[in-house]
């Protein structure tokens, strides 16, 4: 059965500053090779704290299907 889950999605405008790392309660964000932030969808709970902190407005929350 499929259920929907809200997770953070990173867009290409990311400047890899790391502001989103600090507030994440689940340690679900990492910076991939100094280039862009990446979210571990399994850990993310969609709280949106990272999006609030992001100065580049490069995080949105989206619903994804999990099986």
């Amino acid at each position: 059965m499929k259920t929907l889950k809200k997770i953070a999605v990173i867009h290409k405008e990311c400047v890899a500053c790391g502001s989103c790392l600090k507030g994440c309660p689940r340690n679900a964000v990492a910076i991939y090779k100094g280039s862009i932030a990446v979210v571990d969808g399994a850990k993310c709970v969609g709280c949106g704290k990272c999006a609030q902190a992001c100065p580049a407005n490069s995080i949105t929350l989206a619903e994804v299907a999990i099986v």
Partner: peptide, 15 residues
């Protein structure tokens, strides 16, 4: 004016 770390968006060292 904007978010706390807005400087990081255009900081020359960051870029």
């Amino acid at each position: 004016l904007f978010k706390p770390r807005s400087w990081c968006v255009y900081c020359p060292m960051g870029t």
